[in-house]
């Protein structure tokens, strides 16, 4: 996870998304403990209030829960929730931009479909 000052997303959003990414890639397993606010704060040199804000987004969305006196854990079913969320955002995040870029530089619909087929069939990710 990398926190960067130069990109447009606010730090707390970057924290939230970084944790989401780690959950999706199974770095943080469901029901396992994630680093504390202190650890996030010190590691990325950010105010704990900012780290907390990012964490709270995930708590509100049911991705993380807090166990008093112990720490923060990944909710059961978090992976599924995140996948659903990302599926919903997939069209806006990837498809719209891809199609408008393709139109700009003259790649046809068929070209795109062929490219997608090629990528899916070669090396399954």
């Amino acid at each position: 996870m990398n926190i960067r000052d130069d990109i447009d997303k606010p730090i707390f959003v970057q924290i939230a998304e970084g944790i989401e990414e780690a959950i999706l890639s199974k770095t943080f397993a469901e029901e396992s403990q994630i680093p504390s606010i202190t650890e996030f704060s010190v590691m990325y040199k950010i105010n704990p209030a900012t780290a907390l804000k990012g964490i709270n987004i995930l708590v509100d969305n049911g991705i993380i829960y807090k166990k008093r006196g112990i720490g923060m854990f990944v909710c059961q079913g978090a992976v599924h929730k995140l996948k659903e969320k990302r599926k919903n955002q997939f069209f806006d995040n990837f498809i719209s931009n891809m199609v408008s870029e393709a139109k700009k530089i003259g790649i046809t619909k068929e070209d795109i479909i062929n490219m997608i087929k090629k990528e899916y069939d070669n090396g399954k990710n």
Binding site: I37, T38, S41, V42, K45, I46, N47, P48
Partner: peptide, 14 residues
Amino acid sequence: RDLFYKKLLEKYIK
């Protein structure tokens, strides 16, 4: 400098 900011935040939280 890096260490200072980290220690500062640690102290602030603790």
